[in-house]
């Protein structure tokens, strides 16, 4: 048996001594992207299954469109192609909320809990770089999950329904798809990250965001009923949409120029099709929620605690 070769290094790296780094350094401008990329890598594996459920939400209008090829329009009723996209969009909102709950709410809270900010902010990045990085990670995941199935439906329509008039709507629908995919991504990422920055526990942040989402829906529903009782039917629908889920659904109706429907039939209230909510209050609420979320996050990301005395 040969004696072990003492000249061979014990580890994989031959030179185990320490030396300084003299390689290239990148500009600080895109340092936020490092945080975004790392966050996406870390959290995407937790939510890819929900991404499949978002795709499932767009399968329903896909099936409806497929059936439309066989059933005469006088039976199913005339519907614009954009309304099918709205059906998919509104069906995807719940799953996107769950994704935001799972990746947005814990994003900064997880770092707070693990004291990761102590090592992250001790590097040459600003608090703004960190915040943009975290926001962008949640945004890109939500945007991608919302956009990809909608684009798939778009391609399906482009390949199958040109003879039924889709080619006339095709160019107009594409920017609508992009706008409708941006909307939940922007709102959820801003509010969820804002809630996250205030917490030191990912579970608490998730619970708070979930509670906020549901509570706002309940409050807007109650407020809408009160408005109806006082004879304000014309504004009741708008009031009903003054919540996170409401603004996403309501602005979506305006983007796709569609009415809320169930199995292809428009939803009705007092015998009339449910009116579309006013755009301006919903846009104002969405903007306020985003601004509030980002402001909360920016003010609660604390520089590192260096030494505990």
């Amino acid at each position: 048996m040969n004696p072990p070769d003492e000249a061979q290094p014990k580890g994989l790296i031959a030179d185990l001594s320490y030396r300084g780094y003299e390689g290239p350094l990148l500009t600080r401008r895109f340092r936020w992207w490092v945080i975004t990329r790392n966050e996406i890598k870390l959290v995407f594996r937790n939510v890819w299954l929900l991404g499949l459920l978002v795709i499932f939400a767009y399968l329903i209008p896909g099936v409806q469109l497929y059936l439309r090829s066989f059933i005469p329009p006088e039976i199913v009723g005339e519907r614009s192609f954009a309304s099918y996209f709205y059906t998919g969009y509104s069906g995807s909102l719940f799953w996107l909320f769950l994704v935001a709950l799972l990746i947005g709410a814990p994003s900064i809270a997880g770092d707070n809990r693990a004291n990761a900010l102590q090592i992250l902010l001790a590097k040459p990045i600003t608090k703004l770089d960190y915040l943009i990085g975290k926001l962008a990670a949640v945004f890109f995941i939500l945007f991608g999950m919302s956009l990809i199935p909608a684009l798939a439906l778009y391609l399906f329509c482009l390949g199958s329904f040109n003879d039924q008039g889709f080619s006339k709507e095709a160019l107009g629908i594409l920017p609508r798809i992009i706008a409708a995919s941006l909307l939940p991504a922007v709102v959820h990422s801003s509010v969820a990250v804002g809630v996250s920055a205030r917490s030191k526990s990912p579970m608490v942040a998730t619970a708070v965001y979930g509670a906020l989402y549901i509570a706002l829906s309940i409050v807007s529903q109650i407020a809408s009923n009160i408005v109806v009782d006082r004879g304000g039917q014309e504004v009741a629908t708008t009031v009903m949409h003054l919540s996170i889920s409401g603004v996403l659904s309501g602005i979506g109706q305006h983007i796709y120029n569609a009415q809320p429907s169930f199995l292809g039939q428009p939803l009705r209230i007092w015998g009339e099709p449910l009116p579309r909510p006013e755009l301006l209050p919903m846009v104002a609420l969405a903007a306020a929620l985003c601004a509030l979320g980002i402001t909360l996050a920016a003010s609660h990301i604390q520089a590192v605690e260096v030494v505990r005395d």
Binding site: D111, A114, N115, A116, Q118, I119, V304, V306, V307, R308
Partner: peptide, 9 residues
């Protein structure tokens, strides 16, 4: 900086 407390992701 090597902080005192545990900090990891």
């Amino acid at each position: 900086l090597m902080p005192e407390v545990d900090c990891h992701i």
